[in-house]
Write a protein that binds this DNA or RNA. Structure first.
Lengths: 207, 207
DNA sequence: CTGTGTGAAGGCTTTCACAGCC
DNA sequence: GGCTGTGAAAGCCTTCACACAG
């Protein structure tokens, strides 16, 4: 599957959203959907949805709409989410522990294969089916299992150094929950989720 | 404080990031910072930082840079985060429980004053200093305390209906953790954090 | 007549280049 | 010399308008 056709990052984001909506339609046994209906469910304009899809082909039937199953398959293929991706979780504090139990990942085709924790008290247990190992073993595990994705839920003070360790072990994508801008090489992608920041952002809009 | 000067949403986001970085500089007793240094810490270009600040005035000294404390004060004022905002948390499942314990909010000036939960088993307790009430009392609480912000961490099936209830009780901003596009009136702002979506997005970039 | 696909237009952000001030 | 502030240019993304297909 070729993904070098430079689809804009924002479109990629929306593709995931469309996929989510299509999945819901599928379980409701809906076979066909128009761009406007799907767009409304996803919270975007119909023209935008069509433009997004246009980046990698034509799938609709004029006058009718899109076949739900077929479109979902194409999007899955483009996103590369067809194969189950192994992900490790680093940091088993509040957030980390909650994420290990969070069912939403598995539903979307991700499996947290292992977790790592620096505090020896919290390591060496199994939480919600996820084995927790001491932090020292992280690098070896990543190399051995060729892990490509990591969820980083460690305290902000150590976030950068842990990220460095992950990157040098071969991790290519990091979902970062620390309130800091991680510096990584160009070939590594970081996605930051800063919970406090989101709240702060909202408060601006309150009258 | 006037916030009608239409600062773009993206700038607002970055302002929060700058503020975070300034706070760190302050604790390190740094008094002055250049736009390029601050920009690097925040992960943006220096020109962008200056453009962002230009939306609401001039604060730098040419040839020198910005006074850390003064700039932080101005940003806090613009963002409206100077006063402690009361926030309620709805849903005490995995994620909700973790959020109630998450210290990052308090540090940034938000206080979760109460949590609400539909399952009577989980309600009627106190978790990490946050009182948990049954879901039926939510609306009354919001109205009485004039709560303006809510964190929504309920199952996706009920997210929209709970959001409706919050909105009709007077909530103006919602931080939504359900993987769904919430439909709300124009005067309400929603910020969605979709954890599985972020992971999915990352997987696209893995070679 | 309904609904897709798409060139062109429009709008928004970012970046550049440089003037102005310390 | 160093660094801010900003008009102008460039780039990117969204929206419009409409041709085209079933």
């Amino acid at each position: 599957m070729e993904k070098r056709t430079e689809i804009p990052r924002k479109s990629i984001y929306r593709l995931s959203i469309y996929q989510r909506c299509l999945e819901r339609l599928k379980t409701n046994d809906v076979e066909t959907v128009s761009s406007s209906a799907l767009a409304k469910a996803a919270g975007v304009k119909s023209t935008q949805l069509r433009k997004d899809l246009a980046h990698f082909g034509q799938f609709g039937v004029r006058g009718l709409g899109y076949n739900v199953g077929a479109l979902a398959d194409v999007i899955v293929d483009v996103l590369g989410t067809s194969s189950l991706q192994a992900v490790i979780l680093v940091g088993m504090g509040n957030l980390g522990a909650a994420l290990s139990r969070y069912g939403g990942f598995g539903k979307e085709g991700f499996e947290i294969s292992a977790a790592f924790e620096a505090d020896p008290q919290r390591a060496k247990t199994v939480r919600a089916g996820v084995p927790v190992f001491p932090a020292e073993q992280m690098s070896a595990y990543v190399i051995e299992k060729q892990v490509k994705m990591a969820i980083l839920a460690v305290p902000v003070e150590v976030a950068q150094s842990v990220a460095n360790e992950l990157v040098s072990s071969g991790v290519q994508a990091i979902l970062n929950f620390s309130p800091i801008h991680l510096k990584v090489p160009d070939h590594v992608v970081v996605n930051s989720v800063d919970l406090a920041l989101e709240l702060e952002h909202l408060s601006y809009f309150i009258k």
